[in-house]
Amino acid sequence: MSFSDEEIRQLDAIIGHYPDRRAAAATAMRVVQARRRWLSDDALADLGEYLGVTVAELDGIATFGNMVFRKPVGRHIVLVCDSFACWSLGYAELRAAVEAELGVGMGQTTEDGRFTLLPIVCLGACDRGPAMMVDDHLHGPVAPDQVAEILGGYS
């Protein structure tokens, strides 16, 4: 088992929010991911053991959601909203600007491991479209020429 004491503490804390360990699995994956950025096969196996859940069950949930990463990602996650409100307000231009700034396409990670660029469905910020999120910060409306400055704020 490769969990640190701090991870165990956090896991135990969230397990207390549910009637049993099994039910905590989804949140537990997020907790571990928050510290490690992504969930390796080993991390999943350890988590399965800790919670008494099979790896198949964990992966069944992980591969369902779009916010559980089973492959390495960058230090910062850039999400560009592609739903119809933002789409009609300039998603294509915003996306092009982000891709140009990062030098990677959707689903990819910059070579320096700084950013992973991902599409996201509606961020609930249609009134601020076109919108994007970097980690937990919502930005919008974002004009293509603001992209460099926004991304520059993340090291």
Partner: peptide, 21 residues
């Protein structure tokens, strides 16, 4: 051009699907 999100969806890789899109 909607820059189709579904078209971006990673082709299913067995059995570990990337947690994106």
């Amino acid at each position: 051009s909607s820059d189709a999100p579904a078209a971006e969806a990673p082709a299913a890789e067995a059995p570990v699907l990337e947690g994106t899109t």
